[in-house]
């Protein structure tokens, strides 16, 4: 008798835990010849809200961690992902990729994470400045994370695309709510499992599955979400996002659709876009100088 295979339940990832959607709904992911691959959570706006609450809660301590520590943790994600390489390749094949493309996708993903792991304690030195003001003050500008970021995973490159948006956000100290691609949810959920075992504190990354139509709007209109990123959204959706984002002057970055396998799809800008520049002034003692020093 052949052994009965144990199937995996694909759940969402909120606050470091794997709940099912509070709505209790699911959708069937179909593979080739219309066979059911898996039941996937059809998350609701309440799941999106819960994810934002978790992300906000995690923001303070994540943003205050040392840059070095963030780098170590991001690198750890790459290590863990490498260790589950074959599982990801299988899943990507289930979702329709060829074996060769799936392997390329996973390898490029690991490399991308390593790339951003290295940025964690360096971008500050590139984007910060000491400013030569004319008065007797020491004045400097530093980058600080924007806050809670909503990410709409791209519809192409099931693993690499979402990682390319996700990792620069957390490398920069933000916390994230990511809406997985409706077409490619499996690798997003499995990535959550990798993240869960990578020293990433609960709530820093939250991943929900379902339809963009239902999940993006509650994120964009959420007053406690500070920024949104996405890539290659339709003009209508991008426009609707910008309109809703105005309710709390949210930062919105809809990047053009790109070939994620290219080196040009990674870079400092992806980190920098989710940073705020803070400028600090302090007087320099100047006894006897002509200028008043307060």
């Amino acid at each position: 008798m052949t052994r009965l295979q144990v199937l995996k339940t694909y759940k969402i990832f909120i606050g470091g835990q794997f709940p099912r959607t509070e709505s209790g709904r699911y959708y069937s992911l179909k593979g080739k010849d219309d066979f059911d691959i898996a039941n996937v959570c059809l998350s609701s706006r309440k799941d999106a809200r819960n994810a934002v609450v978790a992300a906000r809660k995690a923001f303070g301590s994540w943003s205050e961690r040392s840059a070095f520590n963030r780098g170590q943790i991001v690198y750890r994600i790459a290590e863990m992902l490498e260790g589950r390489r074959s599982q990801f390749i299988e899943e990507l094949q289930l979702m329709g990729l060829t074996a060769a493309n799936a392997a390329k996708e996973v390898d490029a993903t690991v490399d991308r994470i390593v790339y951003y792991a290295g940025w964690c304690d360096k971008y500050q030195q590139i984007v910060s400045s000491v400013n030569p003001v004319a008065s007797s003050h020491f004045n400097f500008s530093v980058a600080e994370p924007t806050g809670v970021v909503g990410i709409v995973a791209p519809e192409e490159s099931p693993l690499l695309g979402l990682v390319s948006l996700l990792i620069p956000a957390i490398a920069g100290g933000n916390t994230v709510v990511l809406v997985a691609s409706e077409k490619y949810p499996l690798s997003a959920v499995t990535l959550a499992e990798v993240i869960h075992s990578s020293d990433v504190p609960g709530g820093v990354i939250n991943i929900i599955t379902g339809t963009a139509d239902e999940l993006v709007s509650p994120l964009v209109s959420h007053l406690d979400v500070n920024a949104m990123t996405s890539a290659g959204l339709s003009k209508e959706m991008a426009s609707a996002m910008q309109v809703q984002a105005a309710d709390n002057v949210k930062r919105v970055f809809n990047y053009p659709a790109m070939d994620w396998s290219k080196a040009s799809s990674q870079g400092l800008s992806m980190i920098e876009d989710l940073q705020e520049i803070k400028t600090t002034w302090h007087p320099i003692e100047n006894i006897g100088g002509a200028t008043s020093s307060y």
Binding site: N131, V133, S135, H137, N139, I277, T279, W281, H282
Partner: peptide, 16 residues
């Protein structure tokens, strides 16, 4: 975006 420590309302072209 701007924090003044032991001063306030200072501006300069070099200061973001």
């Amino acid at each position: 975006g701007v924090v003044w420590a032991n001063t306030y309302n200072k501006f300069d072209p070099a200061s973001p």
